[in-house]
Computed example of a mutant assay.
Amino acid sequence: MKVSQNIGIVNALIRITAGFTILTFATSKLTRKHWKESHLLLAALGAMKVGEGILRYCPIVDLFESRNDHDHNHDYNKGASPNKSIQNLMNKFMSQEGTDSILEEVKEQTTTDHSTQDKMEF
């Protein structure tokens, strides 16, 4: 598995600073109350943030980016990707004929929404 940097330098510096702050807090509390497992967990989380900042790699960001890439590769609307359907809608909207048809569709939809709303009121 090839790991590449996926966070910026400012984000890395913030992670390092926050990680050292959490780590310092947790270790100072851990010296007084060494039986508390929550302080040990905080120390581990702080160390993890420092490590993420130094390596400039966050596994959570990588997970979301890989899911986002997977979602973009998935076919929506029977073979059309969301970007293409949005592009088609924009092209339709930019032409005068498309604008009129979109306005008609919106008017029809609002009238049907109002009629169903009237039926729902008691």
Rank of each mutant, 00 (worst) to 15 (best):
G98K: 00
G79L: 02
I9F: 13
I9S: 11
I22N: 04
H72A: 11
L42M: 12
T27K: 02
S38T: 15
K29W: 04
T116G: 02
S85T: 12
T27H: 03
N91K: 15
L63R: 07
K78H: 15
E121T: 06
H39I: 01
K92T: 10
S101P: 00
Q109G: 08
T110K: 14
N83P: 01
E105I: 04
A18Y: 06
L55G: 01
N6R: 04
V106L: 15
S101M: 06
V50H: 01
L103R: 02
G53N: 05
H39A: 12
F93W: 15
Q117E: 08
I14G: 00
H70T: 06
H34L: 04
Y76W: 15
S115K: 14
W35L: 14
D69P: 01
S101E: 14
T110N: 10
N73G: 10
S95A: 11
T116D: 11
Q87S: 14
T111F: 02
R56N: 02
T111P: 00
F64C: 07
F25Y: 15
S81H: 14
E108M: 10
I9D: 06
K119C: 01
D75A: 09
I16N: 00
L45E: 13
G8H: 02
D113Q: 14
K33D: 14
I16Q: 02
Q109R: 13
S66Q: 12
N68R: 11
A47C: 09
L103A: 09
N83V: 11
R15I: 02
T111K: 14
A43T: 01
E52H: 05
T24Y: 07
S4H: 12
T24I: 08
M120Q: 08
D71M: 10
K92L: 07
K92N: 07
Q5Y: 00
S115E: 15
S28Y: 09
K29H: 04
L13F: 10
L40C: 07
E104G: 04
T31E: 03
G46F: 00
A80T: 04
K107N: 08
L63H: 09
F20R: 01
F20S: 10
M90R: 13
T116C: 02
M90Y: 13
I22M: 15
H39M: 13
C58V: 06
N88A: 13
E108H: 10
D113S: 11
Q5W: 00
P82Q: 07
M48T: 05
K107D: 10
T17Y: 03
E97I: 06
D113M: 15
Y57V: 13
S66F: 06
S115F: 03
D62Y: 10
K49F: 12
D71W: 09
L89S: 14
T112Y: 03
Q117C: 06
S95Y: 05
T27P: 00
I9Y: 09
L55F: 08
E121A: 03
Q5P: 04
L42C: 09
A18S: 12
M94H: 14
T99A: 11
F64D: 04
P82E: 08
I54N: 01
H70I: 04
V61D: 05
A44Y: 11
I16Y: 01
E105K: 08
R56F: 00
G46T: 01
G98L: 00
K2N: 14
Q87R: 13
T31Y: 05
S95C: 06
N91S: 15
S38F: 09
I86T: 13
